[in-house]
Write a protein that binds this DNA or RNA. Structure first.
Lengths: 352, 352
DNA sequence: TCCACTTTCGCAACGCTGTTGCCAAAGTGC
DNA sequence: GCACTTTGGCAACAGCGTTGCGAAAGTGGA
């Protein structure tokens, strides 16, 4: 690491704290305490940020017997990013400001079967509509989140279930050529988890997404864990019943099969219990602080799922003599998380 | 991060490369390439290391048409650490040099039932015997690895199964007072995994330990993942058979119960298969590069376990159209890993 | 109303980092 | 023997966070 890297590291540290503080802002001395830098270093860094238009003064705190602290806050409009959630049947794109707040939104139906070229054109059109024109201005880039196995480091898709023509398609490069701004590609569950992490969830948590399938996004120590091949988070085909009923993947007794079967039978309690067992295995293995549930199927009966999963985790914790890990419903969309794929690095959130 | 931190960061980077290079050494220009620092920066850093006695010149490479590169290598004797594996029935302590090579070893029977004070005295005696006298000299510290839940950040034990008197015992502080050198405490599986990581295993892997119980150590991106409460790696009580046979933990269908039952019945193939299913769940969830098996039970039939686990992972990979994750027997002791709890930070291996 | 005191925060000087420019050293190859 | 390549140290340098210090802006008691 050289001095330039050191500078951007510390700048990102300060920016992240400014973002976390929100519109209320944060004083220089607080920044100094939280970053372990000296007040003078923070003053220099924030002066640069103010010159760049990224930060501004926002009033003062009450005096504690001396000169009152000047409060600084992020300027949300100083930059923006676009996040795209490319799902099997629909595309949702959002434009977010530096704080991650959505300032514009688009939604169009899509059909992955019409071929890569046509879909890329659609994605590019929607993204450009939200980005504004060209690389000039404050557009930082576009993040794309989509299901299925892919390689996030190169932005190449491996397979899109049911559409072999997508195999090995270099989505990132294709879009970068069309848009002229940086593009980042990731799995939908990873993007959702990143969005939740940036939105202030605990340091380590698992986001379990139950929709047409069952997947997970893992956040460990504030960063999304993707694994070497972007394959991490394959939660649905965890075997929890040896020699159980067959699953579409070819194995037997997978959580996804058991869980969705129970949902189909209308046995929500049973589905929640199975999901809870899988979640319990995950919590024990990774020692996360929190489990967040999301996805259409969960949304349809949120209370029931949260209660059922929590019950399993509670039992387990009680037997181990530990405190149970809390279970909650996740708040936040995939497209918002996709935008954070671009914003994250600005605030020092790099790959873990 | 300030300039002092930057300096030690880069120094650790160089030291780690010197250690990895082994007795063959590495040239300054190679160090510069691998650290992304300029050759001149590397020259300054290595000059400091040579002054401190940590590195030395070790011959030259063949010329490629100009001045031949001078090879540098670590001086193994420039520092050492002690690692202690405190198991249920035995204590094994090793003294290792900077490269991690064992230069002395001790082994004594222990009985955790004789009380914390007596055990601490024994540990301190064995450790001091290997450390040499007092804080003077090149002794960097003592690492202790032991089973059971504990808090590695404070070095406090939670419970030692069967010995309630150990609940909440501040092992680290008790030993630091007695020894006068830094002490680090961690779970046995974490220490073993750290030892394997330092010994050169891939960036991300899972170490599965099958002995009197079944646990795991997780290395993600080169660092041990311990979780917020040092609870990560709880692999044995992963449920893989809903409503299966009861386990000692109070749950049903845990991998540990199923696996050890099969071993007791002499059904090693069955045990390996169950272990493979658990490993498959883990590999899918974390996308690790490698699975390593260890522990007394595995050692007794290594071939059979490796083959059985690999078979399950191969099946799974084939169905997913991916390459299977390799399975191997782990080489390395827990005490050696415990010593790396102390040496690790010297080479930039901090908590993940 | 004044003045001592506290607290914030910027300017200037500084020590230290890695970087750049340059040159000596030490080889190869015609 | 000489031109050339490559390594690596010395010296000067730009830029990082730090330290010393003083101006600014409050509080609170006399």
């Amino acid at each position: 690491m050289n001095l330039l890297a050191l500078r951007s590291h510390n700048t990102a540290l300060v920016l992240d704290l400014l973002r976390t503080a929100g519109p209320d802002g944060i004083s220089r001395l607080e920044l100094a305490e939280r970053t372990a830098l000296t007040p003078q270093a923070v003053s220099k860094i924030t002066a640069r940020l103010r010159d760049a238009g990224l930060a501004t003064e926002a009033g003062r705190r009450a005096s504690t017997g001396g000169k009152p602290r000047t409060v600084l806050r992020l300027v949300p409009e100083a930059g923006h990013a676009v996040g795209v959630h490319l799902d099997r049947d629909e595309l949702r794109a959002v434009r977010v400001d530096l704080t991650g707040a959505v300032v514009a939104e688009r939604r169009v139906p899509v059909d992955l079967g019409v071929g890569a070229d046509a879909v890329v054109r659609t994605v590019a059109r929607e993204a450009r509509g939200l980005m504004g024109d060209g690389p000039s201005g404050d557009g930082l880039g576009v993040g794309i989140a989509l299901p299925g196995p892919l390689d996030h480091t190169h932005g190449v898709l491996h397979r899109v279930t049911g559409f072999p023509e997508w195999d090995g398609f270099p989505l990132r490069d294709a879009l970068e050529r069309r848009l002229g701004v940086p593009v980042v590609v990731d799995k939908d569950t990873n993007a959702a988890a990143l969005g939740l992490a940036v939105a202030g969830e605990a340091g380590s948590f698992a986001y379990l997404h139950l929709g047409t399938g069952l997947g997970a996004g893992l956040v460990i120590g504030g960063t999304v864990h993707r694994g070497a091949r972007t394959g991490a988070g394959e939660f649905g085909h965890q075997v929890v019943q040896l020699d159980g009923p067959p699953c579409g993947c070819g194995d037997r007794g997978c959580v996804e099969a058991l869980c969705l079967d129970a949902v189909a039978r209308g046995d929500l309690a049973g589905a929640a219990r199975v999901l809870g067992v899988g979640a319990g295995n995950l919590v024990a293995l990774l020692d996360v602080d929190l489990v967040l549930l999301g996805g259409r199927t969960v949304a349809a009966a949120a209370e029931e799922f949260v209660r059922g999963v929590a019950a399993v985790l509670d039992d387990r914790a009680r037997r181990a003599g530990e405190e149970a890990v809390p279970v909650r419903v996740a708040r936040g969309g995939v497209a918002e998380g996709a935008a954070q794929l671009v914003l994250g690095p600005v605030f020092g959130r790099t790959d873990g």
